[in-house]
Simulated assay, not measured.
Amino acid sequence: MEKMKLKILYSDLKSDIDIIEKELEKALNSSSHLINDASLHLLQSGGKRIRPVFVLVSAKFGQYNIDKVKNIAVPLELIHMASLVHDDVIDNSDLRRGTHTVKAQWNNRVAMYTGDFIFARALEYVTSIENKRVHQILAKTMVEICNGEVIQIEDKFRKDQNLKDYFRRIKRKTALLIESSCELGAVVGGLDDKSIGHLRRFGYFVGMSYQIVDDILDFTATDKELGKPAGSDLLQGNITLPILLLKGNPTIDQFIDQASVGEVTESGRLEMLKVVRNSDSIKQSITISNQYLRKALKEVEALPNHPMKKKLRDIALFIGKRKF
C-alpha cells in the first residue's frame, strides 16, 4: 500500500525517474564481474528514490533540463547507496528491505570495495558539471556523511548519549543528503539564492522527520513490514530517539547490555519491543518528527507560487506519515 502511494505521487515524474534508473544501472557497470553483480544486487533490491525525486522537483522550480539534472540526481543516489553498503558492514546487517545485504550475499571485504566503487562512480559523474558551487556542496556533504559514519561507530551501545548527540548523528546520516538533493536541484535549475535557501532548509527538516519516522518504525512495524527483525537498530547498538526518551528504563538498559555482548534471546527482543511500544516514547517521538515536518511545510509556503509546491507538500506528508 505504501509503495503504491509513492508510485502515485511520482506518476507525473515517471519518465524522468526511468531515465535516472537507466543511468544508475549504467553507472554501476564495472569490468569486475564481482563488483558488477554486487552493485546491481543493491540497485535491484529497491528503494524509494527520495533523493533523486527531490532533485527533480527542486529543479522544476527553475529552468528544468533533465540532461543536466540527471547528472546531479544520479550521483546523489549513488552516494546514498554506497553509504547503505558501508552501514550494513558497520551494523553487521544481513537483511535490508527483506533482501540479503551485499555483505551477507558476499562478505565484508566485497561490501566495502563495492561501496567505495559506488562512491567513486558518484564523483566521476559530477565531473560533467562545471558549476563550482555544485562541487563544493557535494564535497562538503560527502565529508560530513563520512564523519557521521565514524560517529555512529563511536556511539554504538553508548547509554550516556543525549538528544543533541542523536540529532547531530541523524543530520549526517540522513538529513544532510536530502538537504543537498533539494539545494543542488535548485542550483542546477538556476533558482535565486532566496529560493535555494528555502529548498535547502525544506530538505533538512524533511530529512530529520524522515529519519525519526524510520527510527520509530523500527520498533512499531512488524518484522514482515520491515524486512528484518523489529528492534534491529537497538540490537546493533544504535540508540535512537524512542530509546533515548526511555533513558533509565531497567528493561531497556539490560537489553542494551545483553546486545552489546551478543546475548539477546528472542524472548528478550519481544519483551524490549513490548516495553517500547507501550511507552510514551513513541508518541513523543512522533511529536518531534511532526515539529520538523511543520517547519518543512513552512519553507514550502515561502517559495514562489508554482505547481511543484503541492508536490513537495505531498511528498513531505507521505514521508512524515508513512507506516513502514
Rank of each mutant, 00 (worst) to 15 (best):
I118F: 02
V102H: 13
T114S: 12
V150G: 07
E144V: 05
G148V: 09
G98N: 10
R133F: 08
T114D: 09
L123N: 13
A104T: 03
A120H: 14
E154P: 06
N108V: 02
E124K: 14
W106I: 05
S128F: 03
V102A: 12
I151H: 13
I129W: 01
A104N: 06
R109A: 08
R133D: 07
I145W: 07
I151G: 07
H100R: 14
E144T: 10
G148K: 10
W106Q: 08
E154R: 15
V134P: 03
A139H: 12
Y113M: 12
I129Y: 01
R121W: 07
Q136F: 14
A120L: 11
T101G: 02
I151S: 09
F119Y: 15
S93E: 03
Q136T: 13
F117I: 04
N107V: 05
Y125R: 01
V110Y: 05
N147T: 06
L95S: 09
V110S: 06
R97T: 05
G115I: 08
D155K: 12
I129L: 03
V134K: 08
R97C: 07
W106M: 07
V150F: 15
E154S: 14
I129G: 00
A111T: 01
R96V: 05
D155S: 04
D94A: 07
T101W: 01
V126K: 00
E130S: 09
H135C: 06
E130V: 01
F119C: 07
V143F: 10
M142N: 07
V110M: 11
A111I: 01
R109L: 08
A111N: 01
K103N: 11
N108M: 10
Y113H: 07
F117A: 04
N107F: 10
A104D: 04
R109Q: 09
E144W: 08
E130N: 07
N107P: 01
F117E: 00
A111P: 01
V150W: 15
E124C: 15
F119T: 04
I129H: 02
W106T: 06
M142V: 07
G115E: 09
R133H: 15
E124I: 11
E149N: 12
A120K: 09
I153C: 12
I129E: 00
R97S: 08
K132P: 07
I137K: 04
R109I: 02
R121K: 13
D155W: 10
N107H: 14
E124G: 14
L138G: 00
Q105N: 12
Y125L: 02
L138K: 00
F117Y: 15
D116E: 09
D94I: 05
W106V: 05
D94W: 10
R121P: 04
T99C: 14
E149L: 11
V143T: 07
Y125G: 00
K103W: 06
F117H: 03
N147F: 13
K103Q: 13
V110P: 02
Q105S: 10
G98M: 10
R133Y: 12
V102Q: 14
V143I: 14
A122P: 00
I129N: 01
K103I: 08
L123M: 15
K140R: 13
L95T: 06
K132Y: 15
T99K: 13
N107M: 08
R96I: 08
L123R: 07
R109F: 04
N131E: 14
E149R: 13
T99G: 06
N107T: 03
Q136P: 05
D116R: 03
H100P: 04
S128K: 05
E130P: 02
I145G: 08
T141W: 04
V143G: 05
F119K: 02
H135M: 08
V110E: 03
F119H: 12
